[in-house]
């Protein structure tokens, strides 16, 4: 067996996993709190990537320093993605909070369609190339065949975000409110927790994570179009379900498992079926262990 090839696949699997983790986080948090599969979450990642690309291009063509450009572009991506996240919640999900869950899901599909076509119409259906902003890290020279600078950056950023996020959920007041709402939203309301604020913060952080993922992966891959969010979104959802939807640790675990499986699957089996693994996983998990790897099983109350 070729060890070098194995490591290459392992590292690329971890890259995929990191991106899935950043997006899956948004899915799992939203599901945990309002029990909605936010079908449009992948589009927030796409909006993040596009905003990043637009801002980065403007600065890049004006001759701004690449690292500074990347930082500013990411900040803008986070701001706009979060703003979109909070806005769609207010418009398309909030009025449906107390109706059938399927209505909210259909509304989410509508949002997804809308956002994709919004970007398609106002930008382009072609692929746009993302400016090359990430510097070559000199210290990677000995392993440059296996590991690129963007990959290192993706690992680091994902780690920082996940740690920051864990701190937010575990140790801050709003984090506590989020956990309480996820447990029992009616009770939380009675206890004086501002549910609307909790939901807004959930969408905000989820979108921010997706935006970071969007900018990072775009600068690694080098090109984006309006459709990139959909399939990645579905996969991140699979990751969230795999880990046990509603569980944050589960989403991260599921994301890395899926990333590695995809990477090894395409590397050793066939790249034609790249997208198949995620769906196979989804069906197997939901059929045999719907609660996922780390999720709690929920009994319906009769």
């Amino acid at each position: 067996m070729d060890v070098g090839y194995f490591f290459k696949l392992l590292l690329s699997g971890l890259t995929r996993g990191s991106i899935y983790a950043l997006i899956a986080l948004g899915y799992t948090m939203v599901y945990g709190i309002i029990k909605l599969i936010n079908f449009a979450h992948g589009e927030l990642y796409m909006i993040g990537a596009f905003t990043g690309l637009i801002v980065a291009s403007v600065l890049n063509y004006a001759g701004v320093d690449p690292v500074l450009t990347l930082v500013i572009a990411t900040i803008f991506a986070i701001i706009f993605s979060s703003a979109f996240g909070v806005t769609i919640e207010k418009i398309a999900y909030k009025p449906l909070r107390n109706t059938q869950r399927l209505s909210a899901l259909i509304s989410a599909i509508g949002v997804s369609m809308f956002l994709q076509n919004f970007v398609l119409l106002f930008q382009t259906s072609d692929f746009l190339s993302f400016p090359n902003l990430i510097p070559e890290f000199k210290f990677l020279a000995p392993v440059e065949n296996y590991l690129s600078s963007p990959q290192i950056l993706i690992y680091i950023c994902t780690a920082i975000f996940l740690i920051g996020f864990t701190v937010l959920v575990k140790f801050t007041k709003i984090g506590k409110a989020m956990r309480a709402t996820a447990q029992d939203s009616k009770m939380s309301l009675l206890l004086g927790i501002n549910i609307n604020k909790v939901i807004s913060v959930t969408f905000l952080t989820g979108s921010a994570a997706a935006a970071i993922g969007g900018v990072l992966i775009s600068s690694q891959v080098g090109q984006i179009n309006f459709y990139i969010g959909f399939i990645v979104g579905i996969k991140a959802f699979v990751a969230a379900v795999l880990g046990g939807i509603g569980s944050i640790g589960g989403a991260v675990l599921g994301a890395f498992v899926l990333g590695l499986v995809e990477s090894f699957g395409t590397g050793y089996i066939s790249s034609d079926y790249e997208d198949l693994f995620a769906f196979l996983f989804l069906i197997l998990i939901l059929t045999f262990k719907p609660s996922g790897l780390l999720g709690k099983s929920l009994k319906q109350k009769v």
Binding site: I37, R101, L102, L105, I234, L276, F279, L280, L286, P290
Partner: peptide, 26 residues
Amino acid sequence: PVLRLKGDYLAIVTLGFGEMTRIVTE
């Protein structure tokens, strides 16, 4: 396999099946 599921999970799994069918066809 999907009939044990309900609501939104069923929706997503049928989506998965649909896409799998397309990928296999391709």
